[in-house]
């Protein structure tokens, strides 16, 4: 089981999006999400969705991968979509007993579905094209101003780095311990919920013990390499904004202005 799980779906490549600074990617992603929700009518929604699709295509990662990441939340999307049909106002299109389908309801359903789908797609762009270490690095640097409020930004980033490093190690270990207990007749596949939770104890305890042992070792190894928190620390990789980032910024600004203009010049949607 465990060995099939791949964490951080980073897919190395050389596309324009891959070459963007991770900080730009995070900030732009946030603004795209905001504008997906600002879009208030079909024209503006179409514009931001098209722009997002363009970004997705320019990552040169097979579209299948994006569909895969959407499949996970397909149920949620459909469920909220269908639910939205029944709420709304405006012209009644169809009525039976207490169920009423209105123009507003249909609009709502389409909007919610398209918004969530676009959101997942554009978020996948970030995780697909950015290595986990670039991501933590960028988060650390973006959050740096928060140190003014005594938030331990460096420590948070270090924890993320260590977590990303050790999650695969611990998954493999879980797999090993499970096999060892199965070999002693532990039954983890049958019985009711209570029984199954109880059957996990022989796996969880060794896993905890070993995590503490690893943490201890790691702390010592970090001390040996003069780790002393974020103070006076330098980094090997320097993140630099380049022409690509400027281009991405201008492109996005154009799209965002377009969304606002569409919102103003086309009539708002019936809800």
């Amino acid at each position: 089981m465990g060995r099939d799980i791949t964490l951080g779906q980073f897919m190395p490549g050389h596309s324009v999006i891959h070459r963007l600074d991770a900080r730009s990617k995070i900030l732009l992603l946030i603004s795209y999400i905001v504008f997906i929700f600002i879009a208030g009518n079909y024209m503006s929604l179409l514009l931001i969705t098209m722009a997002s699709l363009l970004v997705v295509l320019s990552t040169r990662i097979s579209f299948k991968m994006y569909l895969k990441s959407m499949r996970v939340i397909l149920f949620v999307v459909l469920f909220t979509g269908i639910l939205n049909i029944f709420y709304g106002s405006g012209e009644v299109l169809w009525e039976w007993w207490i169920i009423k389908i209105t123009q507003g309801g249909i609009n709502n359903a389409i909007f919610v579905t398209v918004r969530i789908a676009t959101l997942v797609m554009i978020s996948s762009v970030l995780t697909f094209t950015t290595s986990p270490s670039d991501l933590t690095d960028a988060i650390e640097r973006l959050l740096k101003p928060l140190t003014v409020f005594h938030i331990k930004v460096h420590e948070i980033a270090m924890m993320m780095t260590i977590a990303l490093r050790f999650i695969p190690v611990l998954l493999e270990e879980t797999d090993k311990i499970m096999n060892a207990q199965k070999a002693r007749g532990a039954d983890m596949e049958s019985g009711n919920v209570f029984k199954r939770v109880k059957a996990l104890i022989p796996v969880l305890i060794p896993l905890f013990v070993s995590s503490f042992r690893r943490a201890n070792d790691l702390a010592m190894a970090m001390e040996c390499r003069c780790y002393n928190g974020g103070k006076g620390r330098t980094r090997m990789r320097i993140l630099r904004f380049s022409g690509v980032d400027l281009f991405a910024l201008i492109f996005s600004l154009v799209i965002f202005s377009g969304v606002i203009l569409c919102n103003i010049y086309f009539s708002p949607l019936t809800r």
Partner: peptide, 13 residues
């Protein structure tokens, strides 16, 4: 068929 894995001490609980 009893099986003792590598580093079996890590399975004690």
């Amino acid at each position: 068929v009893g099986m003792v894995f590598q580093y079996p001490e890590y399975q004690l609980f």
